[in-house]
Amino acid sequence: MAAPTQGTREFNPEVRGKIRFSDEALQTIEALMKRYPEGKHKSALLPVLHVAQAEADGWLSAEVMDYVAELMKISSIEVFEVASFYSMYNLKPVGKCVLEVCRTSSCWTRGAEDIVDYIGKKLNIREGETTPDGMFTLKTVECLGSCGSAPMLQCGAEYHENLTENRVDALLDRLRTEGKRKSYTDLDFQNTK
């Protein structure tokens, strides 16, 4: 189950040995590292971690981070210190669709809490929890730059703005029907305004 975000992390050499990203992902990672001057390929770490997270069921385990370190020829701790700093990297397993509802002022003013409540009741989970079928995780996050079309939520690369209960219903239905994992790196995404 959920790994701790701090302190000792479980590391299983057997799991680590079996990790291999798809050729497409490996090519993307190669290309990302070439965007920077000679010897500065560590710069690509943040974008590479997004690719890694999309490859590894939406979260970064100690084993995956170790694998990324090997791919980028940097030390594991360099990967972990970055992964643990930024809020978009999940250090615990998450559902296929992570619903990230903005909770900062403008969204709050326009009913973000009601949306969080509504989703929570509908899916019978609390903030930070995942549905038993592993389909949805509910999170609240800080300002996503959508204050003029509040309230809103992000799911993978998709922005869903001007939310109402009906729109949430439609979105959840769609996501459930598609049944696909949503990643930030997805090329196909349907924003709703």
Binding site: R35, L46, P47, V82, F85, Y86, M88, Y89, V141, Y184
Partner: peptide, 26 residues
């Protein structure tokens, strides 16, 4: 080139942004 960040308000501060662009904590 475009670089995407990892989700941190502090990276809007210019030197934190440069740290982040170098693949480090912001």
């Amino acid at each position: 080139y475009v670089q995407v960040g990892g989700g941190a308000y502090i990276c809007g501060e210019e030197t934190a942004l440069l740290e982040s662009l170098e693949g480090k904590r912001g």
